[in-house]
Design a protein around this nucleic acid. Structure first.
Length: 950
RNA sequence: GGGGCCAUAGCUCAAUUGGGAGAGCGCUGCUUUUGCAAGGCAGAGGUUAGGGGUUCGAUCCCCCUUGGCUCCA
């Protein structure tokens, strides 16, 4: 039986038993912070099991794509392990229980109409104390006792060993069904979990019956298909074997079941399937969390290829095979196949680069070992290379084997464990700790939110909470004297010091969906409360702030007033965010989806998926689209409607988000439809000005745009214009000539420096920079003018004028030094030699050269040494008010007589209050006292004379 | 969120207690050759990521910022 057929039959069977057929949840459920990937079919029904939501159905069946990395080491080595797999399941939420679950499982497995498995090949296990399940297997099904095995809690309880070891909470016994093939080991194909207890504390008597019992079953699709198809491993079933073969072909090896390469091909198959699905959901390989898992899976697969002799990207070539094998149930994979392949290829290329760099480091490590005559690669060394540069230990080991060196896996594991600990353990947040807010939740349930329609409303105080987190408590009333922070708010006052007020209804928006909370005032009879932030806690809206005046009491009437101007600015930024999202997708492609967002007053931060930096031309096009959409003034509307309807209308949905149903959909004209709970303008035209501040990377594959709207955008433009004005005035040119003038300034500085260091006259021909002429003086051209100038000097846009000032003064001082040098007369090796003295046949030059660079002094020394093979030269110069620089050189023949420039320069430097040193042929030193330079030069003459005599 | 590492010519990378910034490839010009992927000669190209500190002197030591790599959770 084909795998697709098995999947379909299973779902069909349970639909015939009154189950709702539910589509697979996403692989990466960002709505569920407790897991990185969907680990099992029941994950999307957590709230159903806990009775947290209103049930529209009490029986469900699904085929869920899952990813687990717990057994990653076994993938490819065993017949049945995967990271990515599909799980068939049927679920009962307080509906049917053990009897139906067992009977239907047996019917589906053995009935000719369904799977038709020979019943004699099946055995079951039950939990040792579960007489009920054992009884059903024996009486209803007619299984003999020897085919019903009773197992301990570590095998047949969920969670494993829960009764004795916890955790507390819902749990229950389970019953597993095993298939026994002609040969080989028996295989567990179906696990029926009967959640019927609530565990409270340690045994005994810690298992309390649940009022509402649930069924949660899981049948591994690949495993069951393998038994039905009679193949020795899951990887040989019809949906996986083509990928295995493609892997073997791409890697240029012959596939064999029982060889290292066979195992590698199977591992590649599993990992590329997992990566394809994850990247399809916009989870790109990256440095954290689920992104990191994808990266690790991908790199493991690539490493397998590398060990089969491949040296360039290949894994991406397997994406079509994955799509072909999985497109039956997941046709959407085909839509993103190209993008997925390119993401994989890019990451592969990165990793091959890492491997190449790793090979060098490994060779170096081998060199070190050879020096010390060691024959075993220390685990700590391998771990350090892995942690620092990502050098895979497997690579290290196989190279070590080629050199007949052993590899210390044990030490490696130990070092990695230590690294894990050094990197910080999981910070456990106390779950379910009860605070004062929980009792309010119980009494009030929710705060009515009025803020979509108004910013002012009358309400009643329902709760007042004071104190810091662990010691916070509800109070009946609070007066000025009791408020920890009355009067003027202290700058940087901690919000945790603040008072929290809960109302029955409010126009204040609590921070959510990236939009910040509102600020404003709560005013009542004789009191005033300033709200500095608003947060959501469950369905409650919490006003955080300080009592400024009077006494606030529970039950008091208040008028809640949101800071209108700020709220309007938030509206502008939030609507602009939607327009930007639209423009990004239009210009970059549909993959440019939101990854995160922060909306404050007239300022927005938007993270989205994109592999490479957005080019400046693209960025300009995006900004232009936004501005055009704003100018067009499309109406903004919102409505609450069923999720399915919103989807039909093409509302943008993000992978992994779980939306409430019904949802709030915000539309702008006919170009943007997003599900969003935030506040918006009524017309896009109200956004006003829009300016993109920056585009930058936040992690691999994710880019961030920061932009301004309304007043902040206008202010920003004004600052740009002011900067251009200041910078161009400084240089005495018109604004549009700024890039030219900057280029000329840079050129002049460079030429002066060269002249000073080479001892020549500067060639001050004005630099003819080729700069794109920018016409007009619009805000856009101002920005591009400043951008040109900023790029040339590698500073930010608003640092241009400052940098120009610094450069101008540097040019001035360079010019002064040059003038000083020229005033001191001609400078050359010959002119110095004319003034030289002779000491025992050796030419000695000791001179003060005002305004000369140390570098030039070195060159002069070289020239003199070339002309006079027997020479000793010491040159000095004064730099600034309090600095002397000395350079001394000794010709080669004198060095051979034991003279050293370093020894010569020492006492000279001491004479000007400094020190120094260097090599025998050339030494450099300095001091702080220019006034003593003449005396120091006397010291230089005496010292060299003594050295020559010795 | 935390640990480690890196940033030097267009590219890949050197530079030893802190003392003169280099190589290979690429580029430009000349030359050799029937021609060329080649050979020979010469040359250009650097705020050593940015900022601050220690020092007579910093690519090197310390601190901060930015960007990148890598591992752990």
């Amino acid at each position: 039986m084909k795998t697709d057929e098995l999947r379909e039959k299973y779902l069909e069977f349970f639909v015939s038993k009154g189950h709702r057929r539910v589509a697979s949840d996403v692989l990466v459920p960002t709505w569920d912070p407790s897991v990185l990937f969907t680990p099992a079919g029941m994950n999307q029904f957590k709230d159903h099991f806990l009775g947290k939501i209103k049930l529209e159905f009490t029986r469900a069946t699904s085929c869920q794509k899952c990813l687990r990395t717990g057994d990653i080491e076994n993938v490819g080595r065993t017949a049945y392990h995967h990271t990515f797999f599909e799980m068939l399941g049927n679920f009962s939420f307080g509906d049917y229980f053990k009897r139906e679950a067992i009977n239907w499982a047996w019917e589906f497995l053995t009935d000719k109409k369904w799977l038709g498995i020979d019943p004699s090949r099946l055995t079951v296990t039950v939990y040792k104390d579960d007489d009920e399940a054992a009884g059903i297997w024996a009486k209803d099904i007619g299984l003999k006792v020897d085919r019903i095995e009773r197992c301990d809690e570590d095998e047949n309880f969920w969670p494993a060993s829960a009764p004795s070891q916890g955790p507390d909470g819902v749990c229950g016994p389970c019953s597993e069904i095993y298939f026994h093939p002609d040969q080989g080991k028996s295989v567990e194909i179906w696990n029926l979990v009967f959640t019927q207890f609530n565990r409270v504390g340690d045994p005994p008597n810690n298992l309390r019956p649940l009022p509402s019992k649930n069924i949660d079953t899981g049948m591994g699709l690949e495993r069951t298909a393998a038994t039905l198809q009679g193949v020795p491993t899951n990887y040989h079933i019809d949906t996986l074997f083509p990928i295995v073969q493609a892997a073997a072909e791409v890697c240029g090896v012959k596939y064999e079941l029982d060889s290292d390469n066979g195992r590698r091909c199977r591992r590649i198959t599993d990992h590329v399937r997992a990566c394809t699905f994850a990247i399809h959901e916009n989870v790109y390989p990256g440095p954290q969390k689920e992104k990191y898992v994808v990266k690790r899976l991908l790199r493991r697969a690539v490493l397998d290829g590398h060990q089969m002799g491949l040296h360039e990207p290949f894994l991406h070539k397997l994406v079509p095979a994955v799509v072909a094998a999985m497109k039956g149930p997941y046709p959407e994979l085909a839509e993103t196949a190209k993008r997925v392949a390119s993401v994989i290829e890019k990451e592969e290329a990165n990793f091959f680069g890492t491997i190449d760099a790793g090979l060098n480091r490994i060779e170096r490590a081998f060199d070190d070992m050879r020096k010390d005559n060691r024959t075993r690669v220390e685990g700590a060394v391998a771990a350090e290379l892995y942690q620092t540069y990502g050098v895979p230990p497997e690579l290290f080991e196989s190279l070590a084997a080629e050199h007949n060196l052993a590899f210390d896996w044990e030490g490696y594991g130990k070092s990695m464990e230590e690294h894990g600990e050094a990197s910080g353990k999981v910070q456990h947040t106390v779950m379910g700790a009860k605070g004062p807010i929980d009792s309010l939740k119980h009494a009030l349930h929710s705060t009515e939110f009025l803020g979509y329609d108004t910013t002012v409303a009358d309400a009643v105080v329902k709760g007042i909470i004071t104190g810091k987190a662990p010691n916070d408590h509800l109070v009946d009333k609070l007066d000025e004297a009791m408020s920890a922070s009355r009067g003027v708010p202290a700058p940087g006052a901690q919000v945790t010091d603040a008072v929290r007020v809960i109302l029955d209804r409010t126009p204040f928006y609590g921070e959510s969906g990236g939009q910040v909370g509102d600020v404003g005032k709560l005013v009542g009879d004789g009191f005033e409360f300033e709200v500095i932030d608003t947060q959501k806690d469950g369905a409650l809206i919490v006003h955080i702030g300080h009592l400024r005046q009077g006494t606030i009491r529970e039950g008091a009437k208040v008028r809640a007033t949101v800071d209108d101007a700020r709220r309007d600015a938030i509206r502008r930024a939030h609507s602009a965010t939607h327009i930007l999202h639209y423009a990004l997708q239009k210009n970059l492609g549909s993959h440019a989806q939101q990854q995160g967002s922060k909306v404050t007053d007239d300022e927005l931060r938007f993270d989205f998926t994109n592999l490479s930096p957005v080019e400046s031309a693209q960025l300009a096009a995006i900004a232009k689209d936004v501005v055009e959409r704003v100018a067009a003034g499309a109406p903004v509307k919102w409505e609450t409607l069923p999720l399915a309807d919103a989807r039909k209308q093409g509302a943008m949905m993000l992978f992994g988000e779980k939306y409430p149903d019904p949802v709030r959909m915000v539309s702008m004209g006919d170009f943007s439809r997003e599900l969003c709970g935030g506040v918006h303008l009524t017309n896009t035209g109200e956004v006003g000005a829009f300016e993109i501040l920056s585009e930058e990377g936040v992690s691999a594959g994710t880019r961030r745009i920061i932009a301004l709207t309304g007043k902040k955008a206008t202010d920003y433009r004004a600052r740009i214009e002011a900067e251009v004005k200041r910078a161009s005035e400084k240089l005495g040119v018109a604004g549009y000539d700024l890039p030219h003038a900057v280029e000329a300034l840079i050129e002049k500085r460079r030429e002066l420096k060269r002249a000073l260091e080479a001892g020549v006259k500067p060639n001050l021909v004005a630099a003819q920079a080729t700069v794109k002429k920018v016409a007009g003086d619009t805000a856009e051209s101002m920005k591009s003018i400043l951008g040109e100038a900023a790029r040339r000097m590698s500073v930010g846009l608003l640092g241009v004028a400052e940098r120009i000032e610094a450069m101008a003064s540097e040019v001035e001082s360079l010019g002064q030094r040059l003038a000083q040098r020229e005033a001191a007369g001609p400078l050359s090796a010959d002119s110095l030699l004319e003034k030289a003295t002779t000491e025992g046949g050796v030419t000695v030059v000791v001179a003060d050269l005002p305004g000369v660079e140390p570098n030039l002094m070195r060159q002069l020394i070289d020239q003199i040494r070339q002309k006079q093979p027997l020479s000793a030269v010491l040159l000095a110069t004064t730099q600034g008010e309090d600095k002397v620089t000395l350079v001394a050189g000794i010709s080669k023949q004198l060095q051979e007589r034991g003279l050293s420039a370093g020894k010569w320069i020492g006492p000279v430097a001491a004479a000007v209050g400094g020190g120094g040193g260097g090599r025998p042929d050339l030494a450099q030193a300095g001091g702080k006292d220019p006034a003593k330079l003449p005396a120091a030069l006397e010291v230089a003459n005496r010292t060299i004379a003594e050295m020559l005599k010795a």
